[in-house]
Every structure is written in structure tokens, then in C-alpha cells.
């Protein structure tokens, strides 16, 4: 790691004051499960690291105005074990359970899960977010088996690693940020963006902003996430699908389906949602939704298999939600 300063403020205002205006100057330290590694890999070489661990108001899960409020510094473990999360948002808790690493549950945070950097090996080896080597786009003819099959027409072909983001988006969650100009909120899907240049980041967060919390409306929608994992231990899913819908007289309404690990952002699949809207969530419809989800897929040279995995993810997520009591 390059040398850096360290600060451990006890209030949000102090934390924000300690942050720089440009990327590269400072980094916010939450659980450290990604940032510390990223600094070792020199993906980021900040001059100062600002730890949020002493800011108590960033922790905890509470009910507020018909929504569940989740502090950004809430570790994954207490979050996924929270009875309200388990009861109302299985799409979130099951996605985290699949990770299967107590050492991550204890340290990694909700905010960190949303802000973590991509796992793309070209990025991690220092070829940049856009994986360029002397003008060559490495994800084009290189090893892209884990890369994007959607949203990959630009230079960015990594997949967004967040396990929670698809569920949050499917559940119409909002994310809340605080910066020097005050607080702002946005729909979770608007938080993520596809970078078009190397210095950019994958989210709307400004360098001197902090994610404070996430709110998820308690609207009684059924929801589920299905991840294709070939391991029962700490590992990344190959693809994921989160679904949320209301069931009225056996018919699905207000459907939202969001895919994970298939694009540089969590990937909304409106065609799949439309195929379910107004239909009974049975096997036949679920298969049709899976097929609709991959209609626009544009696999790279080595990741065509992911379209099959997306089909299955969507189908199984729908059926899991349908079977909920």
C-alpha cells in the first residue's frame, strides 16, 4: 500500500470535511473488506483514509415512515439476521446468505456492498476499469468468462459485484447520501452508472460524499433472489436475478426484475417483468420471463453460457417468490 493519512471522525460532518473533492485524494473506510485489498492492489492510492466506524448514527436497522431504514455502516451479518429483513425482504437476506463467510458478514457493510469496486481481473491487475492494454480492449478478445452480457457496448465490460443492489432496486429502495452541500436521495437504480472513462466510478457518489442509509418501502410485495453459485462457500455468483411483485387473485402485478453480475450496473430487465405482469407466476410463465430477460443479451467471446444462467435465475427467482406464503 502507498502511505496515507488516517482519520477516525466521530460525526458525519467531520467525516465529510475530511474528504477531498477529487477521486484519488481520499477514500471512505467502512468495513474494509474491499478497500484494504483495493489499496494493496493499488487500484486506489488515496492520500487519506477516513474511517466511519465511530459514527454510530450510520448503524442499525429501523422502521421509519412505512419503510425499513438501513444504516450504511450496518454490517451484513446483523442486517441479514434482522427479523424484519428476513420477513419482508428475502430477496436481500438470501443473497447475503449465499456468500457464506462469517468473516465478511461481521465486517462488510451495506454501504460497502453498494460501493465496492468491480472484481474484474483486468481492473484488479492494474489495467484500469476499462481493461485497456496499449489500446487493446482486453475484454474483447481476452478472458471474459465472468464479464458482462448486457450493457457492454461501451468500453466497460466488468460486472457490478453488489449482491444487494438487484434486490434493492427490485424493491424500489432509495439511497441517501450526505455531502458538503447537504443530503440528497435517489432511487437505487440511479445510483449506479456505467463509466466511460478510467477515472470515473461506478456510482453517482461524489468523492466527498458518504452513503448514510438506504430505505426500502414496506409494501408487502413478494420478493426473492436466485443466484447461480457453484460453491457453497465464499465466492461470487455467476449470475443473479431479484424479483418483486404483488400477487392479486393469483396474478402478478407491479413486477420488477433486476439482474446481477451480468452488466456494469445492476441490470433492470423490463421485458422479463412485462412477461410476468398480469400473469400467474407459474412455471410456464417463469420460463417465458427467463427467455424474455435474455432477448437483448450481447455475450462476449467466452460468456455465452451466462444467458442460460440468467434464464434459470429469473425462472427460479419468480417461482421462489410465488411459493412464498
Amino acid at each position: 500500500m502507498k502511505t496515507f493519512e488516517y482519520a477516525r471522525p466521530s460525526s458525519l460532518d467531520e467525516a465529510i470535511e475530511l474528504l477531498g473533492e477529487d477521486w484519488g485524494q481520499t477514500e471512505v473506510l467502512a468495513g474494509g473488506t474491499d478497500l484494504v485489498t483495493a489499496m494493496k492492489q493499488r487500484i486506489t492510492t488515496p492520500d487519506r483514509v477516513v474511517s466511519l466506524q465511530d459514527i454510530e448514527e450510520l448503524r442499525g436497522v429501523s422502521e421509519e415512515d412505512g419503510a425499513l431504514r438501513i444504516g450504511a455502516m450496518t454490517p451484513i451479518g446483523p442486517f441479514m439476521r434482522d427479523s424484519r429483513v428476513r420477513e419482508h425482504f428475502p430477496a436481500l437476506s438470501t443473497a447475503m446468505e449465499g456468500m457464506a463467510a462469517p468473516q465478511v458478514y461481521s465486517r462488510a457493510t451495506i454501504g460497502g456492498n453498494l460501493c465496492q469496486r468491480p472484481r474484474c481481473w483486468y481492473f484488479r491487475l492494474g489495467y484500469g476499469l476499462l481493461a485497456q492494454d496499449n489500446g487493446r480492449v482486453m475484454t474483447e478478445d481476452g478472458e471474459n468468462r465472468y464479464h458482462a452480457i448486457f450493457g457492454n457496448d461501451g468500453a466497460a465490460r466488468f460486472v457490478h459485484p453488489s449482491g444487494l443492489a438487484p434486490g434493492f432496486i427490485a424493491l424500489n429502495a432509495e439511497i441517501h447520501l450526505l455531502g458538503p452541500d447537504g443530503a440528497r436521495s435517489m432511487a437505487m437504480e440511479d445510483f449506479f452508472r456505467i463509466p466511460s472513462a478510467d477515472g470515473e466510478r461506478e456510482t453517482a457518489l461524489a468523492p466527498n460524499e458518504v452513503v448514510t442509509h438506504v430505505t426500502v418501502p414496506l409494501n408487502g410485495k413478494r420478493n426473492a433472489t436466485y443466484e447461480v453459485r457453484d460453491r457453497g462457500s465464499l465466492n461470487w455468483p455467476l449470475t443473479a436475478a431479484a424479483v418483486a411483485f404483488s400477487l392479486n387473485n393469483g396474478v402478478a402485478e407491479d413486477v420488477r426484475i433486476v439482474l446481477g453480475h451480468v452488466a456494469p450496473t445492476p441490470w433492470d430487465a423490463p421485458e422479463a417483468a412485462e412477461a410476468l405482469e398480469g400473469a400467474a407466476p407459474d412455471e410456464e410463465t417463469a420460463i417465458a420471463c427467463g427467455n424474455a430477460a435474455v432477448e437483448g443479451a450481447t455475450p462476449l467471446s467466452r460468456n455465452g453460457y451466462k444467458t442460460q444462467l440468467v434464464r434459470t435465475s429469473v425462472k427460479r427467482a419468480i417461482l421462489a417468490a410465488a411459493q412464498q406464503a
Binding site: 492494454d133 482486453m138 481476452g142 460453491r231 462457500s233
Partner: peptide
């Protein structure tokens, strides 16, 4: 990497061992 030949998973994250 099939073009530049660099090992892409010299780690325990993508060099995966059974647990």
C-alpha cells in the same frame, strides 16, 4: 490472458480451491 499471456488469477479469489 489469451493475448498478452499474463496470469489473470494469481490470487485465491479466482484461483478457486474447494472448501
Amino acid at each position: 490472458d489469451p493475448v498478452n499471456g499474463v496470469m489473470l488469477n494469481p490470487d485465491l479469489e479466482f484461483y478457486r480451491l474447494a472448501s
